[in-house]
Every structure is written in structure tokens, then in C-alpha cells.
């Protein structure tokens, strides 16, 4: 046999790779959307999965509560501290409440909350589903006439969609509360001014912005993390890789979508 080597120029290799990865990205995006919505479409099919929604809400929602309270608390405290020193330069410490509340409700609550939920709940969703694939548990369900998309994927997606807005609201309240403690109790901002400015400067519009974001992030996290687990290469390395990717991809998506949503809601 004669030697046959096809020589490729640098740009050709680069374009080839770019094209391949773009196509692959589009393919995955479509596949993930289809899988997610297929699972969601099974919500009203029999049998009703109520018990599994509760169990997942417990595992993913209640399980993430501690980390959300901790991050919320420290975010509020740091914002109050930083904000105070900046505002004090202009002699407008009274705006501290507005500053802390605005940043948390519009931006930090949804985004940092989403990050924490990705780390705590998202990664465990991917790893759990991936392991179920590797050990053929999903096939076993399938053979026992239980649809794994309905039993495994659906409750997790629904639980995340419900849990994210609730957790983000808790994050917001805790953050505003610790901001108050640091600002008023430690730094001596007028207590009336903190709450009054907070209430005066934040409108319902800002609230909607935060809520829409948290619901959208819930969808994103639910669909991406279940997809990555369900379509993971069924080996131990495959699951490990899928879990890392799920965290990275959902975090990046959250930031990108956050920018897009902010530009719409401003």
C-alpha cells in the first residue's frame, strides 16, 4: 500500500475545526432543547409524578438553602462595607440601602444565586443521571415500563425551575438584611435612611427584572444539567467530564443570558 497523506494548510485546519465545533454546538443546543421540552411535555402524562417533584425539591431546593443563605449573607455584608466607603467619599451614605438593595435584587441575587445552585444542585443532577446511565439504571427503568425522561429528567427540571426563584428571593432578603446590619449597626448609617432609600429607589420594575432572570436561569440550569447527564458518554470519565462541562456551560450561559435580559429590562 502506498503512503497517502493529505496535507492541510494552517487556515484550512483552523476553519475546519471552527466549523466542526460550531456545528457540534448547534447540534447539542438543538438536542438539549428537544430533550428538555420533551421531558417537560410529559408533565401531564400519566402517571402523575407529584411525589418525585417533592423529593427533588427537597434534594435540590432545601439542599441548596444553606449555601444560598451563606452567600447571600456575605454578599450583603461586603456590598454594605464597600458601598459605604465609596458613598462616604461623596457624603451620601444615606444611599447605602438603595445601593445594596438595587445590586442584589437586580443582579447579584439572580446571578450569584444561580451560580451557587449550579454548583450545589446542577452538578449533582448531571452526576446522578450520568451514573444512572453508566450502570444501566435508565435502561432498567425503561424495561420496567417506566419512562426515564418522565421519572428522572422531568422532576429534576421542574424542581430546579421552582427552586431557583424561591432561593433567589431568600438570597435577596438575607443580603438586604445583612447589609442593614453592617451598614446600620457597624458603620452607623441612619436606620431610617437605609430602608427609606431602599424602598424609594427600587421599583416594581426592578423586581420583575430579578424574577424574570431567576425563572429563566432555572430553566437553563434544569435543561442543561439534565441534558449533560443524560447524554454523557457512558463511562466513568464521561460522567466526570459531563459534570465539569455542565457546570461550566450553565455558568457561562447564565452570564450571557443575564446580559441579554439586562439589556432588555433596563
Amino acid at each position: 500500500m502506498s503512503e497517502l497523506t493529505i496535507k492541510q494548510s494552517g487556515p484550512a485546519i483552523f476553519l475546519g475545526r471552527l466549523g466542526r465545533s460550531t456545528l457540534r454546538g448547534c447540534e447539542q443546543l438543538g438536542d438539549a432543547t428537544m430533550l428538555g421540552f420533551h421531558a417537560l411535555s410529559l408533565i401531564f402524562s400519566k402517571p402523575w409524578q407529584g411525589k418525585h417533584f417533592v423529593l427533588q425539591l427537597y434534594a435540590l431546593g432545601v439542599g441548596s438553602l444553606a449555601i444560598i443563605v451563606i452567600t447571600g449573607a456575605f454578599t450583603g455584608m461586603v456590598l454594605a462595607l464597600q458601598g459605604y466607603y465609596t458613598l462616604a467619599k461623596f457624603g451620601s451614605e444615606s444611599l447605602l440601602g438603595a445601593g445594596v438593595g438595587m445590586s442584589i435584587i437586580r443582579e447579584l441575587g439572580p446571578v450569584l444565586g444561580a451560580f451557587m445552585i449550579i454548583g450545589r444542585a446542577g452538578s449533582s443532577i448531571t452526576a446522578e443521571i450520568g451514573i444512572m446511565r453508566v450502570t444501566e439504571q435508565t435502561d432498567a427503568l425503561e424495561m420496567m415500563a417506566v419512562n426515564p425522561k418522565q421519572r428522572i429528567l422531568l422532576p429534576r427540571i421542574v424542581a430546579v425551575i421552582l427552586a431557583v426563584p424561591l432561593l433567589v428571593a431568600i438570597f435577596d432578603v438575607v443580603g438586604i438584611g445583612t447589609g442593614y446590619i453592617v451598614g446600620v449597626e457597624l458603620l452607623g448609617v441612619n436606620p431610617g435612611a437605609y430602608m427609606a432609600e431602599l424602598v424609594a429607589k427600587i421599583s416594581m420594575h426592578d423586581m420583575y427584572g430579578g424574577w424574570v432572570k431567576s425563572v429563566v436561569f432555572g430553566f437553563l440550569i434544569g435543561i442543561i444539567c439534565t441534558y449533560m447527564g443524560y447524554r454523557a458518554v457512558p463511562t466513568t470519565e464521561g460522567v466526570a467530564q459531563a459534570t465539569t462541562q455542565a457546570v461550566v456551560i450553565s455558568s457561562v450561559c447564565v452570564l450571557i443570558i443575564d446580559y441579554i435580559l439586562t439589556s432588555f429590562f433596563l
Binding site: L57, Y58, G61, V62, L65, G101, I105, L162, P165, L166, L167, A169, I170, D172, V173, I176, A196, L198, V199, A200, I202, S203, M204, D206, M207, W211
Partner: peptide, 21 residues
Amino acid sequence: FVIVGLLAITWLAVKVGQVGG
């Protein structure tokens, strides 16, 4: 958990979100 979450949302909506208080 759901009640705590809903309370948080309500507090934000009623106390903070209300236009000008």
C-alpha cells in the same frame, strides 16, 4: 421551604417593590 421562599417574594414585592412605599 416553599413558604419561606414565598414569604421572601411577598416581602420584597410588598415592602420593597411598592412604588415609593
